[in-house]
């Protein structure tokens, strides 16, 4: 469904992505693991065209998206939902306005229908009667769930999760993992998650890929990753400070 070919991205002299090759199949959950600062979020933002790659191609459903024009880009974006690391809810808007933001702008629906979709999506993430609240009145976990409701409000085909369990307690992290699995089942979504939380990665992944020094250094199912003999993967999944990955 999504094919990333030889992707490069630099910020000045900082070469973040140095030839990433990755294929994400329809309906699967691909989890990209790697140390903080390895470019996982940059890769995610490049997929959704928030950042333009310096070199390389991104193919989506047989189309080269890197060469797409403005209109094609807009149509492409409508097929994605993104859950940002810090939820990225709009502070000045209520929960209802946040969740319905895309619906109001892109779909010409009557207000009753919008209200129904908002209620339904909030219920899917386990929230009720909070439509009138503002992001500042919500806990970290609730913000993430509202952001997830916003991401799925437009019925996307692909959902991107940027560190979905960062900044929440372990119980809430597990609840978010369950939600990700639930979303996949109910909405038949293709998902891409980046995380360094191995508990979460093992739970939600169909396949995992490790990003190190701007390249994918290993890929496989959670079981294959656990058995991997690649010293980089072994060090990362065991969480050891000793090994080929140097602390900077």
């Amino acid at each position: 469904m999504i094919r990333i070919v030889n992707l490069y991205k630099s910020f000045g002299s900082n070469h973040v992505l140095r030839g990433v090759d990755l294929e994400i199949r329809k309906g699967e959950t691909m989890v990209i693991i790697g140390r903080s600062g390895e470019g996982k979020s940059v890769l995610l933002k490049t997929i959704v065209k928030l950042l333009e790659p310096d070199h390389g191609e991104i193919w989506f459903g047989g189309k080269n998206i890197t060469a797409a024009g403005e209109k094609e880009k807009e149509a492409y974006l409508r097929r994605f939902g993104v859950l940002f690391q810090g939820a990225a809810l709009f502070d000045s808007l209520s929960v209802e306005e946040n969740v319905s933001f895309g619906l109001r702008r892109m779909k010409n629906l009557p207000e009753k229908e919008i209200a129904r979709i908002v209620r339904e999506r909030l219920a899917m993430v386990g929230l009720r009667d909070i439509e009138g609240k503002y992001p500042s009145e919500l806990s970290g976990g609730m913000k993430k769930r509202v952001a997830l409701a916003r991401a799925i409000a437009m019925d996307p085909e692909v959902i991107l999760y940027d560190e979905p369990t960062t900044g929440v307690d372990p119980i809430m992290a597990d609840a978010i993992n369950d939600l990700i699995l639930d979303m996949k089942k109910k909405l038949s979504l293709t998902s891409v998650a980046v995380t360094h939380d191995m508990v979460s990665a093992y739970k939600i992944a169909d396949r995992m890929a490790m990003l190190h020094e701007g390249r994918i250094v290993g890929m496989g199912t959670p079981a294959q990753i656990k058995k991997s003999r690649n010293p980089l993967i072994r060090q990362f999944i065991s969480g050891s400070a000793q090994g080929p990955i140097r602390l900077v």
Partner: peptide, 17 residues
């Protein structure tokens, strides 16, 4: 600036705004 560093500007773009 606060919207930018909390990724709200990116969120706007992903919602085609």
């Amino acid at each position: 600036g606060s919207m930018k560093i909390t990724e709200q500007i990116d969120a706007l773009r992903t919602l085609a705004a």
